[in-house]
């Protein structure tokens, strides 16, 4: 009896010892040196692995941050300035200043504004519809509404509104990772600089057609008339391909262009209400 116990103990101990020796040598042989700061930096990143920084995941950004001499071009849009400042502190570098941004849809073509001319019946994905034909309205630039952006969003920040058939982006939840920008086959989602109180003034249209066809296709299309360009005192608005664009960096939120626009293509969001015009604009948003 006791000998059985003894043999068991000895043989098991021997086995454990041999395994330990083998494991030790293997570990030595295949040891890979890794900068411990990579783990440290990775720990403070959001761990969303969303790819918004341009890398495959948070680990890859951490490696890039440790390797880089300056933080130029490296930014975690999800964590924003606080996370980048913390990373800079760990690595003893200075963080690059990157303005926080938010996704904005450059289209306001709800069924009320933009009449449907045909009915799409294929697989319900924008990328498939877009490779086949120019959308179910007269406007071939605007939102199709089949939700490729919604499916791409990992932060639950974007949902297709069942009435307007347009994506609604939540300013609080959007982390500006850019997944929807990449997912949209029409390239009509833009990451715009965030302003205080989430205020926004932008041309909610992407139609590059001439004024006539654009207006016929959609009530709130930018017709490229250039009135906003003239009224802007800050050179923030440019006109290209019959389409006005407001530079968020130059815009001072004076709201003159909003009043001037004959088709209500320029939207003002999160501003205190004002007379008449505000009601019209609000109606268009809905």
């Amino acid at each position: 009896m006791s000998s059985t116990v003894l043999i068991t103990i000895i043989s098991l101990s021997l086995l454990a010892f041999i395994s330990a020796v083998i494991l030790y040598f293997v570990a030595q042989k295949f040891k890979v040196y890794e900068d411990p700061r990579i783990d440290e930096v990775q720990a403070i990143l959001p761990a969303a692995n969303c790819g918004g920084c341009g890398f495959a995941g948070c680990r890859n950004l951490a490696e890039a941050l440790v390797k880089a001499d300056t933080f130029e071009g490296l930014n975690c849009p999800v964590g924003g300035a606080p996370v980048m400042a913390e990373a800079a502190r760990i690595l003893g570098k200075t963080p690059a200043v990157v303005d926080p941004t938010v996704a904005v849809l450059l289209c306001n073509g709800s069924p009320d504004n933009r009449e449907r001319t045909s009915h799409y019946d294929g697989a319900m994905e924008c990328r498939i519809s877009n490779s086949l034909y120019a959308g179910n309205t007269g406007c071939s630039y605007g939102c199709l509404g089949y939700g490729d952006c919604e499916r791409s969003c990992k932060f639950d920040a974007l949902h297709i509104d069942p009435l307007t058939l347009l994506p609604v982006i939540s300013d609080e939840k959007c982390v500006a990772c850019g997944a929807c920008v990449k997912a949209c086959p029409l390239h009509i989602i833009e990451l715009r600089k965030k302003a205080k109180k989430d205020r926004k003034i932008y041309v909610a249209c992407s139609n590059c057609d001439k004024g006539g066809p654009a207006r016929r296709a959609c009530k709130v299309a930018c017709i490229g008339c250039g009135k906003c360009v003239k009224v802007c005192a800050f050179d923030a608005i440019t006109l290209k391909d019959n389409l006005a664009y407001i530079d968020a960096k130059k815009c001072t939120f004076c709201r003159k262009c909003v009043v001037e626009c004959p088709t209500n293509a320029i939207l003002e969001i999160n501003f205190p209400p004002r007379k008449e015009k505000a009601e019209v604009a609000a109606e268009n948003v809905n």
Binding site: L132, A134, S140, D209
Partner: peptide, 8 residues
Amino acid sequence: APDSGGFK
């Protein structure tokens, strides 16, 4: 002019 897919 739009073709059968609506592309101009």
